[in-house]
Amino acid sequence: MKLSMIKKFKDKKINSFLLWGLILTGIMLLIVVIGIFWTPYDPTKMSASEKLQGISLRHILGTDNKGRDIFSRVMYGSRITLGIACGTMVIGAGLGTILGAITGYFGGFLDEVFMRIVDAMLAFPSILLALVIVSLFDSGNIVVMVALGIAFIPSFARIVRSEVLRCRTMDYVENARIQGASDFRIIFRHIMPNITGVLWSSVLIGFNNAVLAEAGLSYLGIGSQPPYDSLGNMLSSAQQFMVKNPICVLGPGFAIVWMVLGFSFLGEGLRKKA
């Protein structure tokens, strides 16, 4: 079954980047989905007798300093990291697209003001911007999601705006206008479908950046709060005893790498195919 599927991919000229991206992302999503219903152990259950164990059949990725099963915690942490990244993209790409489309389409003074604000926000690297927003409120999953989402708005607004600017003067837009379509309809029914390609590849890149930024923020201790740790939290708390049990940092660390690698392969594959 699997082999024939791979063969089918090859026949369709799906490149190896896309194939590996699908495999890596597929396995990761599968593990995360399973983790919603079942984990080998309770990710928050501590056990004094099973501290800092290495790889074994009982605990495939060993245990941490409180005797918690690392594989279960990675399953759980990946879900949080992935969830925050998804939320970030919904907020960032969603609002960014709407704002960029509207300002790009109408132009004028509002557009000028908006672009200055976007420039101002782009002067901050996204992790710094999120850091500022989190510092103004409190830490926690929702705040991190909103903060990262806001931090991602400018780049999406920029991309969509320039695409809309390019499409605005094209014949089909003019045509729709003559037919009496409203501005709203022209933007979302006529222009949008023509820029989805650009949008999707930036969403994939943005998604990776969101995963990395979330992991970075939780690593700094301002992301999600214990005991419901994301992968970044696990890394920062495991750093103290990594000499005794390196798997404690390698497990969650490679989970992040796996996740990012899968998506970047997917993006690369889609780009090459296009």
Partner: peptide
């Protein structure tokens, strides 16, 4: 290139500490 690109800097920092430092 693709693989290293996927490693967040703080994780490579941790690995460097583990390998070259400790």
């Amino acid at each position: 290139d693709q693989v290293i690109m996927a490693i967040p800097p703080f994780f490579s920092g941790i690995i460097i500490t583990l390998v070259f430092g400790l």
